[in-house]
Nucleic acid binder design. Structure first.
Length: 283
DNA sequence: ACCAGCTCCTGCTTGC
DNA sequence: TGCAAGCAGGAGCTGG
C-alpha cells in the first residue's frame, strides 16, 4: 500500500488513540509478518505508555515509557483500524479483514487498534529508543523529503553519481526516503522528466523543478488523506482521495491532461515496476 | 559502489 | 462460468 502520504495519514489518525495512553493488552494472532515479530513483543508492549509518535520514511515509530520504540511498517497491504467503543466507534470487520487481523492492541483508555495485512509484507520490531538511529531499517535511509535536510543540492549530488534511470534512483530510499511508485511517477510527470533519463544527465535546473514537484505532490497527497487504490484506508475506515488527482499513475492509454490529448499515457516496466508517463510532455 | 532481477504473500483483475 | 496467469502501493538479497 502505502507511501509516505499514506503512512503520515495513518500516523495522524492513530495519534489520538495512542498518544499518552496506556497499553493494557496485546493479542498476537500469528508470530510473523514479513519476518518474525520481535521476541516477546506482547509482553514488552503491555503496561507501557505511549510517549510520542513519529514517522521516518514509511515507518511508524512509537516511543514507549519502557525505553523501547515500536517500529511498524505497513508493507504493501497493511492497514490499521482504530475502534473506541467509549466514543461510540465500532468497526465491522469483513471476513477477509478478520482473517488477516494479525495484531490487536487494547488501550486502558478505551481504544482498540488492529493491524490488518493480507500479503504480510509488513513488519514490526522493538528497539531501544537510544539506539533507534542505528536500527537496520533506518540507518541507511536518505533525507525526509519534507524535512530540513532535503534540498536541491542533496538531490543533485545524489543524481550525479547515478547512471540508472531517474525513476529507479527516486525509488531508492537512500536517495530520498518515503517515495514509492505512485508519487515518483507523478513527480516526474509534473517536472516533465522522462522516467528513463539517466539521473546523472539531468540538468540542475530540471532537478530543481523535480525537487519542488516532489515536495508539492507529497504535501497535496497528505492533505487529501493519501491515495486509496485497494488497501489504504484511514484508521477510521475512511478513504483517501488523492488518486483522483493522478495525472499519469494507472492511466495507461488515456489522454494526457497536459498536452490535451496530443499523446496518451504510456506504461513501461523499470526495475520490475510499472512506470506511467507522457511521451510528448516528458523528455 | 552500483544495478537489475528475483523473492516474500494473498487477493483481485484479465484473458482464454 | 471456470481457471490460470498476471498484476499490485515495498524492500532485502543475490550475483554480475
Amino acid at each position: 500500500m502505502p507511501e509516505l502520504p499514506e503512512v503520515e495519514t495513518v500516523l495522524n489518525g492513530l495519534r489520538p488513540a495512542l498518544e499518552h495512553k496506556h497499553i493494557e493488552h496485546v493479542e498476537l494472532r500469528r508470530g510473523d509478518l514479513r519476518w518474525p515479530l520481535p521476541e516477546n513483543m506482547g509482553a514488552r508492549l503491555t503496561g507501557s505508555t505511549v510517549e510520542n509518535m513519529t514517522r521516518r520514511s514509511k515507518y511508524i515509530l512509537i516511543g514507549l515509557s519502557s525505553g523501547e520504540t515500536w517500529l511498524i511498517h505497513l508493507g504493501m497491504s497493511g492497514r490499521i483500524q482504530v475502534e473506541d467503543r467509549t466514543l461510540g466507534q465500532f468497526h465491522h470487520f469483513t471476513a477477509m479483514e478478520e482473517k488477516h487481523r494479525h495484531v490487536i492492541v487494547k488501550m486502558r483508555e478505551g481504544a482498540c487498534v488492529s493491524y490488518i495485512d493480507p500479503r504480510r509484507f509488513g513488519a514490526m520490531d522493538l528497539c531501544a529508543t537510544a539506539q533507534i538511529e542505528n536500527h537496520v531499517w533506518l540507518r541507511n535511509l536518505g533525507p525526509e523529503p519534507l524535512g530540513n535536510h532535503f534540498n536541491l543540492d542533496v538531490l543533485f549530488t545524489a543524481f550525479q553519481r547515478r547512471a540508472a534511470p531517474v525513476k529507479n534512483v527516486l525509488l531508492d530510499q537512500k536517495t530520498v526516503a518515503g517515495l514509492g511508485n505512485i508519487y515518483v511517477c507523478e513527480a516526474l510527470f509534473e517536472a516533465r522528466i522522462h522516467p528513463n533519463r539517466p539521473a546523472k544527465e539531468i540538468a540542475k535546473e530540471q532537478v530543481e523543478t523535480l525537487y519542488h514537484k516532489i515536495v508539492d505532490v507529497l504535501r497535496q497527497a497528505i492533505a487529501a488523506g493519501g491515495s486509496t487504490l485497494r488497501d489504504h484506508q484511514q484508521v477510521d475506515g475512511s478513504l483517501g482521495y488523492f488518486q483522483h488527482n493522478f495525472q499519469v499513475y494507472g492511466r495507461e492509454g488515456a489522454p494526457c491532461f497536459a498536452c490535451d490529448g496530443k499523446s496518451e499515457i504510456r506504461k513501461i516496466v523499470q526495475a520490475g515496476r510499472s512506470s506511467f508517463f507522457c511521451d510528448h510532455c516528458q523528455s
